[in-house]
Amino acid sequence: MTSAAPVAVQPVPRGGLGKLVGRRLVDWLPAAVVLVGGIAAWQGLVVALHVQQFLLPKPSSIATTFWNNRSELWHAGWFTFQEALGGFAIGSSLAILVALVLARWRPLSAALLPYAIAANAIPIIAFAPIANQWFAGGLTKSSKIFIAAVLCFFPVLVNTLRGLTSVRPQDLELMHSYAAGQVAIFRRVRIPTALPFIFSGLKVATVLAMIGAVVGEYFGGTQEQLGVLILDRTRIFQFPDAWAGIALACLLGIALYVAVSIAEWLALRWSPSTSA
């Protein structure tokens, strides 16, 4: 009798990453059209309205500068990217660890969570100049890593904690019927439930990590840093150079975001919303 049933059921999705990208390419077509159209309109308007270069350079001159200065830009970008990545890794992993501890001992969470939420709402970037003073006057990577890490910490903490505590009661009940201990419950129920929440926190954190690193550099750093490069070129009126630096900061931020999104897709392939 049930031999007929399999017909009605979809096969297990086994599409690789290639298939995902393939499908997404079509999805991204409208967005790509908007991007190309936007850049073309920018170019057209700057030329047609004779906009001064210090206000807004042409995309074509930004691109040319980008290409001509590629080795210097790449050097600075890589330096800053390392700061952002370091801050992201340290801040996020600490946040996940703290969330696990807080979820395990609820009274602790009740005492500390309001402050975490409050800290999440304050503009931590305002502390950047102070942080630079704490770490060798801001000449090393560590002050920027620190700022990026603090920026990443709170959104990841709040999201992870929400994920760990939003387990369905019946899922816990099943584990209780097996007399499962806390470790088994975390490993088999709470963490899998929390994964989608953790990844949305991590995606927010990627953006904040780049902001933390670049803005931290605005308040002091060495020549090889992207933020310092952008600031210096603006001061000496080399606007296309500054814009090329900004473009690189954007690209690096997007790269980090995309990397986390791919990790998310790989980790959440079981979820109906990922496979659909």
Binding site: Q170, E173, L174, R188, P192
Partner: peptide
């Protein structure tokens, strides 16, 4: 004991 709940209670992951 083993229990079968009224809802299946299966883990999507």
């Amino acid at each position: 004991y083993g229990i079968v709940f009224q809802d299946p209670v299966l883990y999507d992951w």
